[in-house]
Structure formats: C-alpha cells, structure tokens
Write a protein that binds this DNA or RNA. Structure first.
Lengths: 116, 116
DNA sequence: TGCTTGATTCGACGTTCATCGATGTGCCCT
DNA sequence: AGGGCACATCGATGAACGTCGAATCAAGCA
C-alpha cells in the first residue's frame, strides 16, 4: 500500500523481517547489505565492538584507536561505520565521541533471529 | 585458561559473546568479519535470504538463480557464502542443494543481541 | 557414444577498498 | 597570537572484489 510509496530511507526502517521468514526485496537487501558490509572488516568490527562495550555506551576516538593501523585509517573506518548508520559522533571540546545507533543493532539482530 | 590454547577454528565457536558485553579479540573479529563481509553484498544477501526462507530449509541453485546476474556470478557468490561457513552444499543427482548453516546464523544474531 | 541441461571454474576487466603520509581543521592553553 | 593536541580530509598505491563470456565438469537420457 502506502508502504510502497515511502522508500524507507534508513536501514533501520527497512528491515524488521527475519531472514528465514520471507526473502528480502531488492531495496531491503541493498540497505541491509550496506550495514553488513560495514561490519565486514576486522578493524571496523573491533572499533565497533570497543564502542559498544564501553561503559557509558560511548567512547572517544583516543580510547579506541589502538587497533594496529594508522590514525587516518581509524578515522576512515569510523566514517564508514557512521555512513552505514551504525554509529553517531559528537564533538565535545577537544574530543569526538562515538556512540552505537541502538536501532541499527536491533535491525540486524532481528533480521538474523529465527523467529518464523 | 585453556580457552586461549584452542584457536577456535570455526566462526561459530568463535563467537557467543554479545558485542556490547566485551570487546572482541583479534581472532574473533577476523572470523566474524568474514561472515559479515559475506552478507555485505546485495546479491549474496538475497541468495542467502532465498535459501533461508525456502520451505524445506534448502534450495537448489536453479530455484534461486533469478537475482539479476549471470549464472557464473551466482555460483561465485554461493561459493563465497560457503567459504564463510554460512552455507553448505550437497549434490543430489542433477541438482546441487544449498542449506543455511544454522549455528552460523545463531552466532551472528547472538553477537548482535544486546543482552548485557 | 553422443547430446542436453545444471553447475563450477577460468581468465580478464573495471571498480571499489584499505592503507599510508602529508596536510587541514577545530579546540584548548599559555 | 601562538603553539600543541585531537581528529578529519586528501591523494596515491596496491590488493581485493563483482561481473561477464568461454570453457569445463557432472549427471541423465536417447
């Protein structure tokens, strides 16, 4: 119905359907693939994990930069995670704090859960 | 303890830790990133979805090949999904049947669930 | 033995990506 | 104003990736 007329801008809106329930549409697959792709790099996954497991749910770049690559590369990966909708960033004074987008996590795990 | 001495060959064994619980080790991140990477392509995600949502939990290649790319490309993507441990394949007569590795799905969704 | 259909492998081509050093920007402190 | 720190952007480079047509393999059938 009207669902077809709203293109579902955010990956989060795009998926609440469990993978095993019914096959994905082309649009859904493109949005979700972008999120999976963002986590499909060891360095990015570690950065994401460091942020997600941080006490206050947020971490400054300096807290998580120790992943074995140069600082520009860390910044590059954080940007990709941000562009995929998995992270948000906020500058407070000298430091920039990153935080996991909660609904994004839910969308991915919801899709992978076998509840159908 | 002894956990450190067994390298956790399979991605499934490697991860049962929720992402938000504690940060991933280097080995864990590499194994899990390979699985996410495998789903990080729209065509592969649709193939995976088609198999996962198939009635008997398995599908022959001919049932899922209609994803808009050539047949060698389909085969290539199925191979990548197999190598990531997400699918298993079995030849029965003329056709080859693919099936989702159940524990792989569980590992990924378990990692993304926020239960900590 | 040949022929047909289903599926994988091979070789090539253009694109995307991860990585780095150098440079730029924003903020704080003296 | 000036210097120093945290982080982002730029430009380049080599590797990995997605895609295809052609060739190959595997199984069934005449």
């Amino acid at each position: 119905m009207s669902k077809l007329r709203e293109p579902a801008r955010s990956p989060v809106e795009a998926c609440c359907t469990p993978l095993v329930g019914q096959e994905l549409s082309v649009e859904q697959s493109e949005l979700m693939a972008a999120m999976f792709k963002a986590l499909g790099d060891p360095v990015r996954l570690r950065l994401f994990s460091k942020i997600a497991s941080h006490p206050d749910g947020e971490a400054c770049v300096c807290d998580i930069s120790d992943v074995g690559v140069s600082q520009p590369t860390v910044s590059h990966h954080l940007k990709r995670l941000r562009e995929a909708g998995l992270l948000t960033s906020e500058r407070r004074g000298t430091w920039v704090y990153y935080r996991v987008t909660p609904s994004a996590l839910g969308a991915m795990s919801g899709m992978l859960s076998a509840d159908a």
